[in-house]
Amino acid sequence: MPTPSEPAPAGAGAVRTLIAPLRYVQGRGALARVGEFVAPLGRTPLVVADDAVWGFTGGTVRDSFAAAGLPLVRDGFGTYATAAAVEAIAARIGETGSDVVVGVGGGSTIDAVKAAGHLAGVRWASVPTLASTDAPCSALSVIYTEEGAFEEYRFFPRNPDLVLVDTQVVANAPVRFLVAGVGDALATWVEARAVARTDSETMAGGVPTLTGTALARLSWDVLWENAESAVEAVRHHLVTPAVEKVVEANTLLSGLGFESGGLAAAHAIHNGLTAVPHTHGLTHGEKVNIGTLTQLVLEGAPRAEIVAFVELTTRLGLPNTLTEVGLGVDDVDALTTVARAATAEGETIHAMPFAVRVPDLVDALRSLETLSTTIRDRAALPAPAAHRA
């Protein structure tokens, strides 16, 4: 495992803060206990899950709620956490008289539920069925347009009251989603160390604590030691100690690390990539992986660190070139659109220790093709199968 450069010590005098979910629950079979953990939060829950997710979770949730003496009202969900979706869920909370709303499914479902719970003034719980993002633990939601482009962050005064992850459910899902979660989580330390160098404000509402930065680093270390073993296990729908560790790193450690350690260029570049239609079929973590590699290029990170990152993420199946995300080095207009969105006012790229201008970012993105293919060729690594033309 490479040892990335450490951030410089942060200055004194600023307010430091760490935020976290009220309770985190993880393990094989945890979904069968969801009623037990929801019951202390409210007695009239509204569950939000799309039809596909409800098909493999509904029976377990229904039985668990019955055992806890809870009524079950379930609403469906669409594709993206849009403003309209949030308002519709909030309206349903009012109609049903619910005092807690539970999101079961992927990151968009959970983000919409968090935003709706805040809007309706009730408590909210996250029950992710994938370990594909660190969204379940955070006190924010990413809101998209109906077409899937990033629109805004919404921030809330508290984190979810409950995050519950059933690792067998995660292991039963297509392995691409666990890999995507690794792509999202690997960015956590790369971004947090940049934020620590500048003492920029994090999404927790202050500058980073030592704890937030350390958790970001721990996420990185856990993934380097366990990600490949976990991915192989999940290909066969197995839950092993490596899977448990990676699920925790993807969900809890990355969630705490990004929110209280800080975001920088990688997630801003992800947001920029959503501004072009070429990338809309990709997962969040696949786009973030392009952002992380681009951040390393912008930083002038040591060559050994970049090589190790490309080799690991290629072996996992994550994209590292523009071609693999539907773009190309000659798509200058599209890349300029990406760069402008990524460097917009308020974006997290401004937490970097130096200014990032649109031409700088376009050139960094264009450099990925030759950089990654050269590293792969020298290591005799083919492009990830999911992204080959």
Rank of each mutant, 00 (worst) to 15 (best):
Y80D: 06
V102Q: 09
A149F: 06
T251A: 03
A149W: 00
T202D: 08
K245D: 13
T283K: 09
A81F: 04
D221F: 03
H350A: 11
A216S: 11
P2G: 03
N159W: 02
R92L: 09
T57G: 01
F354P: 07
V329L: 01
T348Q: 05
T374S: 14
V276K: 00
G94C: 10
D111Q: 10
P9Y: 01
L164T: 04
L162M: 03
L322M: 03
Y153T: 05
A173Q: 15
V47E: 04
T44M: 12
T60H: 03
I349G: 00
G106T: 09
V358A: 00
G97M: 13
H387W: 13
T60D: 06
T133V: 14
K287T: 05
R378T: 13
A265F: 00
T373Y: 00
R16H: 12
L316Y: 03
G262Q: 01
V222L: 12
N172M: 12
H280Q: 11
G69S: 02
T373V: 13
E36N: 08
E324V: 07
D331E: 10
G255Q: 03
W189R: 11
L46H: 04
P136M: 07
G346L: 06
A68S: 12
D99N: 15
V122I: 15
L322F: 00
G29Q: 12
D63C: 02
A351G: 02
S260I: 08
F65Q: 08
L312D: 15
A14C: 13
G42C: 13
S219G: 11
T313W: 02
G58K: 12
A268V: 05
A308Q: 11
G58I: 14
G13Y: 06
L223E: 05
E286K: 08
T348A: 05
V297E: 01
A196T: 06
V113W: 05
R158Q: 12
A52E: 11
L335T: 00
T109S: 10
E228K: 05
R62I: 02
R366L: 02
M1Q: 13
V53R: 01
G328M: 03
N320G: 15
A187K: 04
L119F: 01
N250I: 13
S98T: 09
T57I: 02
D51S: 15
A180W: 02
V86I: 14
T314S: 13
H267C: 04
A230K: 01
A233Q: 07
L178F: 07
V329M: 04
A308T: 06
I349A: 00
A385K: 13
R197L: 09
F150I: 01
G13L: 10
I143F: 01
E87H: 14
E369D: 15
A39G: 11
E201A: 11
A386V: 07
Q168E: 15
G326Y: 03
V102G: 09
A386W: 02
L140W: 04
I375E: 00
P353N: 01
W124Y: 15
E324C: 07
R123P: 05
L335R: 03
R340I: 04
A49Y: 02
G94I: 06
T129I: 13
G255P: 08
R217E: 10
S108P: 08
T202M: 09
T129F: 09
P241F: 09
G257A: 06
L293C: 10
R123N: 05
L238N: 09
R388F: 01
G29R: 11
A275G: 04
V169C: 14
A386K: 04
S126V: 10
E152H: 09
S64I: 10
G328R: 09
T60A: 13
E191F: 08
A10E: 10
